[in-house]
């Protein structure tokens, strides 16, 4: 019997744009206090899921509970409890940092001493205290993202939803962002749910849901996902990939596939098999690479195509 309450509980969720299916029969539970990444290439359905969870779009079918409140019947209750950080800027560029926060506070009924206190706390923690009177149009991308975070956290939500939060940030700003998200999770037990198309970013999450073409194809801890691959990955570029794949599969008894013109397979002892393949087919191989299992390998294993391939429809964000 499962007695653990979920921060997000999704059952049989399907969403269509006209005849095109953006999310297909999704069932997913996200636990309180976890850092959860929704990973997938453009058009995989992750932004649709973000918009549904953030109450920007109405459900078509299936059921969704956010922090125990059902959508869409209890949308207002959900809105009070979640913080949302959008991919595209939601700051008013003509207003100062302080004005943006005050206007956000008005939307949640925060004012007076509570507003001053929360604003100060957030600005101090996010290193924005000396920017309060600066118009946001004059801030760098990293600082603007911090103001977005401050806006999202002003009403002290239990759940923070972020859509592609690293987009447009330099590596330093990305590190800052993640440090802050981890602090929220660890110190304030905030459930953090973010969408991303960056494989290395997703690895920092506690659990990852991998989406492809509107379907959930994998769900687990990053290490567990990579361990499911069954060894190192070998990728070979050759002249006739189909024939080469057949020859390698026959000779070494491995489940080789052709992915985007490359022969690819996994093996528990990558270094040893690499040497043997090279010895046997050196005249037909242009390049060969050996890698530890990555999330892209998981994606390929589950979907049969590479993470960034034309298989995903960009329009289906």
């Amino acid at each position: 019997m499962n007695t653990t309450p979920s921060a997000i509980d999704i059952r049989d969720l399907t969403h269509r744009y006209g005849r095109r299916v953006a999310l297909a029969d999704l069932t997913l539970q996200i636990e309180p206090g976890e850092m959860f990444a929704i990973l997938g290439p453009n058009g995989c359905g992750k932004t649709t899921l973000f918009r549904l969870l953030s109450t920007l779009m109405r459900l078509q079918s299936g059921s969704v509970y956010v922090l125990g409140k059902q959508l869409p019947q209890q949308s207002d209750e959900v809105r009070r409890r979640i913080g949302v950080v959008f991919q595209s800027p939601s700051l008013d560029r003509k207003l100062t940092v302080g004005e943006n926060l005050r206007f956000q506070a008005a939307l949640y009924g925060i004012r007076g001493r509570a507003l001053v206190q929360r604003q100060q706390e957030l600005l101090d923690h996010l290193g924005l205290a000396d920017r309060i009177h600066e118009r946001t149009e004059h801030l760098s991308g990293g600082l603007r993202r911090r103001v977005e975070l401050a806006k999202g956290m002003l009403h002290r939500p239990s759940l923070l939803l972020l859509d592609e939060p690293s987009t447009g940030l330099d590596p330093g700003a990305r590190t800052d962002l993640w440090r802050y998200l981890e602090w929220l999770r660890d110190e304030h037990q905030v459930t953090v749910v973010l969408t991303t198309h960056l494989l290395d970013e997703a690895e920092r999450a506690d659990r990852i849901a991998i989406f492809s073409q509107g379907r959930l194809v994998a769900l687990d801890h990053p290490e567990a996902l990579k361990a499911s691959i069954g060894g190192d990955s070998i990728t070979i570029r050759g002249q006739d990939s189909a024939t080469l794949r057949q020859a390698i599969a026959d000779r070494f008894q491995v489940a080789a596939k052709v992915i985007d013109g490359h022969v690819r397979f996994e093996h528990p002892d990558g270094a040893q098999i690499l040497a043997r393949v090279m010895e046997a087919f050196s005249d037909r191989i242009q390049s060969i690479t050996l890698g530890r299992p990555s999330l892209e390998d998981v994606f390929i294993d589950k979907t049969g195509h590479r993470f960034w391939s034309h298989g995903e429809d960009d329009a289906a964000t």
Binding site: T3, A7, D9, G68, R156, S158, H188, Q189
Partner: peptide
């Protein structure tokens, strides 16, 4: 039997001082 989410989730993290905005 799986519990209904609305029966089990506690309010957490500052929800007690949550105020309602005047439209």
């Amino acid at each position: 039997m799986m519990q209904r989410p609305e029966d089990t989730i506690p309010d957490r993290g500052g929800s007690n001082d949550r105020t309602t905005a005047c439209p």
